[in-house]
Design a protein around this nucleic acid. Structure first.
Length: 424
RNA sequence: GGAGAGAUGGGUGAGUGGCUGAAACCAACAGUUUGCUAAACUGUCGUACUCGAUUAGGGUACCGGGGGUUCGAAUCCCCCUCUCUCCGCCA
């Protein structure tokens, strides 16, 4: 959520940057500014009445104490009118505040100056590519066939127990999951991230804090009896650790990592996108989160991209890094780099990580502030996060790219974790 | 799930209708003093909105959350959430 103050001071700039995200802000920004002006006037008027009431109430107390009951009664009469008036004004003020907020949450974050214009995925900018494209034999097969061949992931069994998109990992398939999780967490720890193990269900406040509510409510599983939501990513519980918190600037950067399963309803997905491990309702992911001083958040973004790049390199996967264009960026992000790995049998690039700087957009909702050591004022912090990494598509690429006659070859960096070199 | 007790500022904790935005102590910050450290002393020390010149200085709201009673509520009443104790159930 942008702040009204920022919009007011940079109106033209805001409208111009929103256009890069293909969002026409002219009308809504005007409405916000008008309503906020009205809000200020209402508050001013109401505060004055409240101040008068407070002072009369004080007088009445003194009058009673000094035995002037009649004068006190007279003063009471005066407040009756004021009370009626303030009731109306308060209601109007609340309503106006609500309207401002309703409009404000509809405005996306401003894209960073480096974000290319564009409409969709085809306009994303490839920053760099790395890794070796594998050369597969003619009889190479996609990962869903390999999963069956080696009996390591059972999609049908998942269908029976739960439903589509909830696979059962078996034997070495299951051990591979554990190995990847531990590998990712260890790498995160080496890079200075503190490990957290958060709840997998969150309350409504947390959903609002990171912006899943109210917009993406339909994407989360909702336990209605207790009004809890299954997390779609560890970003939600981890970032909400700092909801309503004022940190000291000296604590920056705050670095957190967490492994959690993630639950997504993925309403509206279909076709080859959801085949095998390509898109699941439950999957495992290690997330990294940083909270940083606004002046340093872009350095931090680079650092996080480098961290994720290190992971895919160690896994020896062919990858590319994309700078998302305005049209393909998420609502909340100011700058996003996507990581894709190449799954050679499907001959498709699969997104495995998305690393973003949200600047103060998320922090404003979370009320996550820091105290400036010089000015002693509170300011909104910057938040960043990224997947490091999401498992299923990594597994898909590993299976497809590393298929050999001897079985699936495990990359060297992972062998200490799997304690086997081949899935056979 | 049942019964009872409770929720106050960064922490401990006082406060049962006006003199309380909130005592006291601790922590933190700034300064004074001692050769350094330590100690002592002095001062500062919640958040948000708002008026004002992004000054000085005012105003309003907030004592778990929401509503009510009253001229006036941290204090009284109702609902909700959470914590603790006992009972029940249980990995």
């Amino acid at each position: 959520m942008l702040t009204v103050k920022f919009i007011e001071e940079n109106t033209d700039y805001v409208i111009e940057r929103l256009a890069v995200k293909r969002f026409n802000g002219t009308e809504i920004i005007g409405q916000i500014l008008d309503l906020d002006k009205k809000r200020r006037q209402l508050q001013n008027r109401n505060d004055n009445i409240l101040a008068e009431m407070n002072s009369i109430a004080k007088e009445i107390g003194i009058l009673y104490k000094s035995g002037k009951a009649q004068e006190a009664e007279a003063a009471k009469q005066r407040t009756a009118l004021l009370k009626e008036e303030t009731k109306q004004h308060s209601a109007e003020l609340d309503e106006t505040e609500k309207q401002v907020k309703e409009l404000l949450v509809q405005v996306p974050n401003l894209p960073h100056i480096s974000v290319p214009r564009g409409n969709g995925a085809e306009d994303n900018e490839t920053v760099r590519t790395g890794g070796q494209m594998p050369e597969l034999s003619a009889d190479a097969v996609p990962h869903w066939d390999l999963a069956k061949k080696y009996d390591i992931i059972d999609f049908e069994l998942g269908n029976k127990i739960t439903g589509a998109g909830f696979p059962v990992y078996k034997g070495k398939g299951s051990k591979l999951q554990r190995a990847l999780i531990n590998f990712f967490l260890d790498e995160g720890e080496k890079a200075g991230y503190k490990e957290y193990m958060p709840p997998l269900m969150v309350n409504e406040d947390s959903g609002y804090g990171t912006g899943q509510l109210p917009d993406k409510e339909g994407q989360m599983y909702h336990a209605t009896l207790d009004n809890y939501y299954l997390i779609p990513t560890a970003e939600v519980p981890v970032t909400n650790i700092w909801r309503d918190v004022i940190v000291n600037a000296s604590e920056f950067p705050i670095k957190a990592t967490a492994y959690t399963p993630c639950f997504r309803r993925e309403a509206g997905s279909y076709g080859k996108d959801v085949r095998g491990l390509n898109r699941l309702h439950q999957f495992d992911k290690v997330e990294i989160v940083q909270i940083q001083h606004p002046s340093k958040s872009y350095e931090t973004l680079e650092e996080m991209v480098a961290h994720v790049e290190g992971l895919v390199k160690k896994l020896e996967l062919p990858y590319r890094i994309l700078r998302l264009c305005g049209g393909d960026m998420s609502f909340t992000s100011a700058l996003t780099f996507d990581f894709e790995v190449y799954a050679a049998a499907q001959q498709r690039w699969l997104e495995v990580s998305s690393v973003s700087n949200f600047e103060s957009f998320q922090a404003n909702r979370l009320k996550l502030r820091y105290r400036d050591e010089v000015e002693k004022k509170t300011n909104l912090a910057h938040t960043l996060n990224g997947s490091a990494l999401a498992l299923p598509r990594i597994v898909a690429a590993l299976l497809e790219n590393n298929q050999t006659e001897k079985g699936i070859k495990i990359p060297a960096a992972l062998v200490p974790y799997t304690r086997f070199e081949y899935i056979d």
